[in-house]
């Protein structure tokens, strides 16, 4: 066995003992590095007799190839072995960070505001404690109208105003219509979105004495029913989804003429009312009622200082709780305003 065979044997033993990738790297440097053993042997070639030089060179080359291969083999073997470091369960949860919650109403209000902002609507805030005038008379609901009696509206113990009547908690966001017209001094364009708390003396499984409404008001030259349809169609598609449709049905409100109820097509049966021949469980014949709407009554425009001969407009109102129910299917309104964290923390 000549020296080179002995060296190959030695290298093999060393490589075979390696248990860590670092050890292999060290052996690689010791043998194949610039100052490694192979290079040192190569430098010795000049001392080899001429006739043996060729064989010596060939042998060295074989040695180098063999070591290179064995290093690679050993690396592969090591990689295949499982890690020997202590077990860490990487599926454990990370450092906990606080998770708060927003109220469902807040989430809906933001979504709705953003949708209307994109088409130039301005969000406003008007009094919740209001005068009769803004909640009723300015909306073409004269004295004696059923909505004005105290079965439908909460009044406040306070002296009445000679001009504006009794003090009350506004039963709808429509009271903002006159306020917005006056803010703009009766000068359209008006593009209002009023989302606020409203109050009615009614508290049972499906009503809370306080609730949120969203009111849209658009007044300008040449505003017509098609514009109202266009806006509601835009809103329904943005808020509920691009595949949803709207329809208007005749209805009656004092402050709009004509008046409509607006429906959104059901997301389950897509307006058909049936699924595989069976009645849809979610909707009333294919459509879900969204809210009330109509063309602003000329009397309402006049009260706001807007000339009904020059301008026309539409108004739209709906309950936020209802919109949430329609979009997210959450209808536990009794939890909305009682501060029960078991409910509120879910959002």
């Amino acid at each position: 066995m000549d020296e080179i065979d002995r060296l190959l044997d030695q290298a093999q033993t060393e490589i075979g003992r390696c248990t860590e990738p670092d050890q292999i790297n060290a052996i690689e440097i010791a043998w194949l590095g610039r100052h490694g053993k192979i290079n040192q042997l190569l430098q010795k070639i000049k001392n080899v007799p001429d006739d043996a030089r060729k064989t010596y060179g060939q042998k060295l080359n074989r040695l180098k190839t063999a070591i290179t291969r064995q290093l690679a083999d050993q690396r592969q073997r090591l990689n295949k072995q499982t890690d020997k470091t202590p077990f860490i369960d990487l599926t454990l949860p990370g450092t906990p960070y606080p998770k708060g919650s927003l109220h469902l109403i807040t989430i809906a209000v933001e979504e709705i505001s953003r949708i209307f902002e994109k088409i130039g609507f301005v969000r406003v805030s008007y009094p919740e404690v209001e005068w009769e005038y803004y909640s009723f008379a300015s909306l073409n609901m004269p004295k004696g109208h059923p909505a004005r009696d105290d079965f439908e509206t909460s009044f406040i113990k306070a002296p009445a105003d000679p001009t504006y009547g009794k003090m009350l908690l506004t039963p709808h966001t429509s009271s903002g219509q006159n306020r917005e017209m006056r803010r703009l001094h009766g000068q359209p364009p008006i593009r209002m979105i009023n989302i606020a708390k409203c109050y009615r003396p009614n508290w049972d499984a499906t009503h809370t004495p306080m609730f949120f409404q969203c009111e849209g008001l658009c007044v300008d030259k040449g505003i017509n029913i098609s514009n109202l349809k266009g806006t509601l169609n835009y809103f329904a598609k943005e808020y509920f989804g691009a595949d949803r449709e709207i329809r208007l049905r005749p209805h009656h409100f004092q402050f709009t003429e004509p008046s409509f109820e607006v429906d959104v097509s059901c997301n389950l049966c897509h307006g058909r009312g049936t699924i595989n021949g069976k009645k849809c469980k979610v909707c009333k014949s294919g459509w879900l009622e969204l809210g009330g709407t109509g063309m602003v009554h000329p009397h309402v425009l006049k009260e706001g200082g807007v000339d009904p001969e020059v301008y026309s407009g539409w108004a739209f109102g709906c309950g936020i709780e209802r919109i949430i129910m329609m979009k997210y299917g959450i209808d536990d309104i009794r939890y909305y305003y009682n501060g029960d964290l078991r409910f509120l923390k879910k959002f």
């Binding site: 130039g120 008006i190 658009c218 300008d220 505003i223 514009n227 349809k229 266009g230 835009y234």
Partner: peptide
């Protein structure tokens, strides 16, 4: 038809 009213600066 569904026709959005023109944008206006309020």
């Amino acid at each position: 038809p569904n026709v959005l009213q023109p944008i206006a600066l309020v």
